[in-house]
């Protein structure tokens, strides 16, 4: 098995007249935190949506854990082990935090209508396991006390955490985070950083799209930079920071 958990091969995607992604290839190694940065509109979120099956690329393919993701729907991609969060947060607002995470267990559990109606032993045990695991995850991200609050009534930072807990509930191999620190203050960002490090040390690979360059540079093992839909660099943070093309893209060295 290759040491890449996820590899993209020449992904291209066009929307009308806009080339959102042009021939993008990179690889994420098992167990690393991989950062994806780039100026606004560089194609980060488009790439994200291709990886998670929401968009079908015009050409190229994604290899995950040794297998192509070609033609898979988002739910099938999740089943293979990629979990994601959304830039604009997409929680199940009218359900409690606990229920949000419990729903995350859906893909790893089995009870159907029969089990629901007859509540056989297997179903009851599964339900108990789901609830237990959900509580653990809420504790893990630090919002246990909010278990019974409706998701929409949580504070912004807690909503971000809840979305991560829900993603973790799917037992992912790769956790893909779309700007998790957006809108957070310094304390919250520091806590988020700790959380990501903890997740990684539990053996889950992380793909991080982020605007906060400082966070990315301090946290990631390797970084890829997108600009106008093209990958202009892929390396360790300190090398990327010194890459003239990257400095160019960020308007004369605004980074670091």
């Amino acid at each position: 098995m290759s040491d890449f958990l996820l590899e993209t091969r020449s992904i291209s995607k066009r929307f009308g007249g806009v080339q959102a992604l042009a021939d993008v290839s990179f690889g994420i190694r098992r167990g690393e935190i991989f950062g994806l940065i780039g100026p606004n509109g560089a194609g980060k979120t488009s790439l994200f949506n291709v990886l998670t099956g929401l968009y079908v690329p015009d050409s190229g393919e994604v290899i995950f854990d040794g297998q192509s993701l070609k033609g898979l729907k988002p739910n099938e991609v999740a089943e293979r082990g990629i979990a994601r969060t959304f830039q604009n947060l997409r929680l199940f607002g009218n359900l409690s935090a606990l229920e949000n995470v419990m729903i995350g267990r859906h893909v790893r559990t089995h009870a159907g209508v029969f089990g629901a109606i007859f509540r056989n032993r297997a179903t009851l045990e599964e339900e108990e396991a789901i609830e237990r695991r959900a509580h653990e995850l809420l504790k893990y991200v630090g919002i246990e006390r909010r278990a019974n609050t409706l998701a929409k009534n949580l504070s912004y930072g807690d909503q971000r955490r809840l979305e991560i807990a829900r993603a973790l509930a799917t037992d992912p191999k790769l956790l893909a985070l779309d700007e998790p620190a957006a809108g957070m203050n310094a304390t919250e960002t520091a806590a988020l950083r700790g959380l990501m490090e903890a997740i990684r040390s539990d053996g889950i690979t992380i793909l991080l799209i982020e605007h906060d360059v400082k966070l990315v540079m301090g946290l990631c093992d390797r970084v890829a930079v997108l600009d106008y839909g093209q990958k202009i660099a892929e390396d360790t943070p300190d090398k990327v920071q010194r890459d003239p093309k990257v400095i160019e893209a960020y308007l004369g060295g605004a980074i670091a």
Partner: peptide, 19 residues
Amino acid sequence: RIGRAWEAIREDETAARAI
């Protein structure tokens, strides 16, 4: 499990698919 999946779809279909 099924009931929760229904409610998930009601709340946000894209998010439901993503998990």
